[in-house]
Design a binder for these strands. Structure first.
Lengths: 243, 243
DNA sequence: CGTACCGTTGAGCAGGCTCAACCGCTGTGG
DNA sequence: CCACAGCGGTTGAGCCTGCTCAACGGTACG
């Protein structure tokens, strides 16, 4: 098997996760080998989708798992009351397509223009069974997502709106990807206020007010609607940690 | 390699998860082979711990993963404010011991007397790398836990205390294990009201009041402190689904 | 049998939700 | 090119529910 060209490898999936075990490597990234990425690229399909496109709907048969290459995606659920709960925001190197008994448990939609890898579950399963190392990377990724879920329950247990929003922004600052015009303390928020509200469990009015409060307290400065700049990092971090 | 005795196998770990893929098998249980369970038993240690024992503390070096055989465990976090957030309740066939960079991210404590399997991560990793099928079971289990985490965020997004409690009880009714004196609509709640409050994000007073409300509305009947009987299943289910 | 913790109940307060009006940007069609 | 509609976002007023503080009751365990 000949070595794939660099250009080809750059168009293959990769994953991001903090390992549960101690490692010397960059803790931010788990490393798929070129060969593993190539194999994933082979069974998968690279998709280029416009903003707002629905990727799959709740309860639809789940034939695929998706990996984000570029852009942002949201997974959400429509509740009987009409309320929407956002389960997760996904960014480059994230996986999504959580299913139960062969059906997706929520709806996925592109927030921005996105590039995705669509991996057929059947073939992925075969691949994982033949490559325990690759499977271990997926396992690490799931572990990472579980930790994030725990972090979120802590967020949702906070009583103060400003604190919740601060924790959210703090979380997003890690997700923020280079090459999107970000500086060190500039956090991109591609989603709407409504989406944020549905994620952190507040009404959108309260999110709006909390934003104003953070700004008034001199911790952050909103740059347009989809970016925040953390002005006073120490005080901001203190608020985030003050649970 | 000789086949292990039945008695020995009954003393080996197993896992419980709803598969993400369609299967014909009992959707409630994923099946470890006898050989896999035997191998887990070999690298692991069976522990018998009294109620209230601390299994590990937050930030302690994480050398083990645990599987519950009998009893109930809680994973929680002490926040700087002194508040506690319960991350999860664990029951037979559940896994716990979530870590990040080699350290546990929360504290685990026995609620009742428990029997655990303590699996050394290092050896488990080797085992998983040699047995992709076994690893796949672990992967399925993690997927299952992610779904539960999503379900919980929906719970935490509810505004009404009674509804939250109802969803919690509903969730516990699935966890409830036979052989604990349960009848079909009798749900065991081994944890304290305080623990429940720290899990569903309410003050313990509100949990108490919500319990009274559910009872007053004729949906449930509390049997002592650690059991509920669902009296009016239809109305109860309606409240649970009415998000 | 006592003691400490768990749980219940009550009164008052505060923070977030709801309803509602208003602003500003975007995209569309005349 | 402009007018207008529509959506996302902000701001305000009032209500409601869950939190806090506090006292009391009950149960489990030594």
């Amino acid at each position: 098997m000949k070595k794939p060209a660099v250009a080809q490898i750059d168009r293959a999936p990769s994953l991001r996760a903090v390992p549960f075990d101690r490692t010397v490597a960059d803790p931010e990234t788990i490393q798929l080998t070129d060969r593993q990425r190539e194999q994933l690229a082979r069974i998968g399909m690279r998709l280029n989708l416009p903003a707002r496109m629905v990727i799959y709907r709740e309860a639809a048969p789940s034939h695929w798992v998706f990996a984000v290459a570029e852009g942002a995606v949201k997974c959400f659920r429509e509740l009987p009351s009409g309320k929407r709960v956002v389960g997760a925001f996904l960014f480059p190197r994230d996986l999504f397509g959580l299913a139960e008994n062969g059906r997706y448990i929520n709806c996925a939609q592109a927030i921005t223009r996105v590039v995705l890898y669509r991996l057929p579950i059947k073939e992925l399963r075969v691949l994982l069974m033949h490559d325990a190392g690759l499977q271990f990377q997926f396992l690490s990724k799931l572990t990472h997502e579980l930790r994030q879920a725990q972090r979120r329950t802590i967020l949702l247990n906070r009583r103060d709106a400003a604190g919740r929003l601060a924790m959210f922004i703090d979380g997003m600052s890690i997700e923020t990807v280079p090459g999107t015009g970000r500086t060190d303390d500039n956090v991109m928020l591609p989603m709407t206020r409504s989406d944020i509200a549905a994620f952190i469990g507040l009404s959108l009015e309260t999110v709006s007010r909390a934003s104003a409060e953070l700004e008034r307290r001199g911790m952050v400065k909103f740059i347009g609607r989809h970016a925040v700049r953390i002005v006073d990092q120490p005080r901001f971090s203190k608020l985030v940690a003050d649970v």
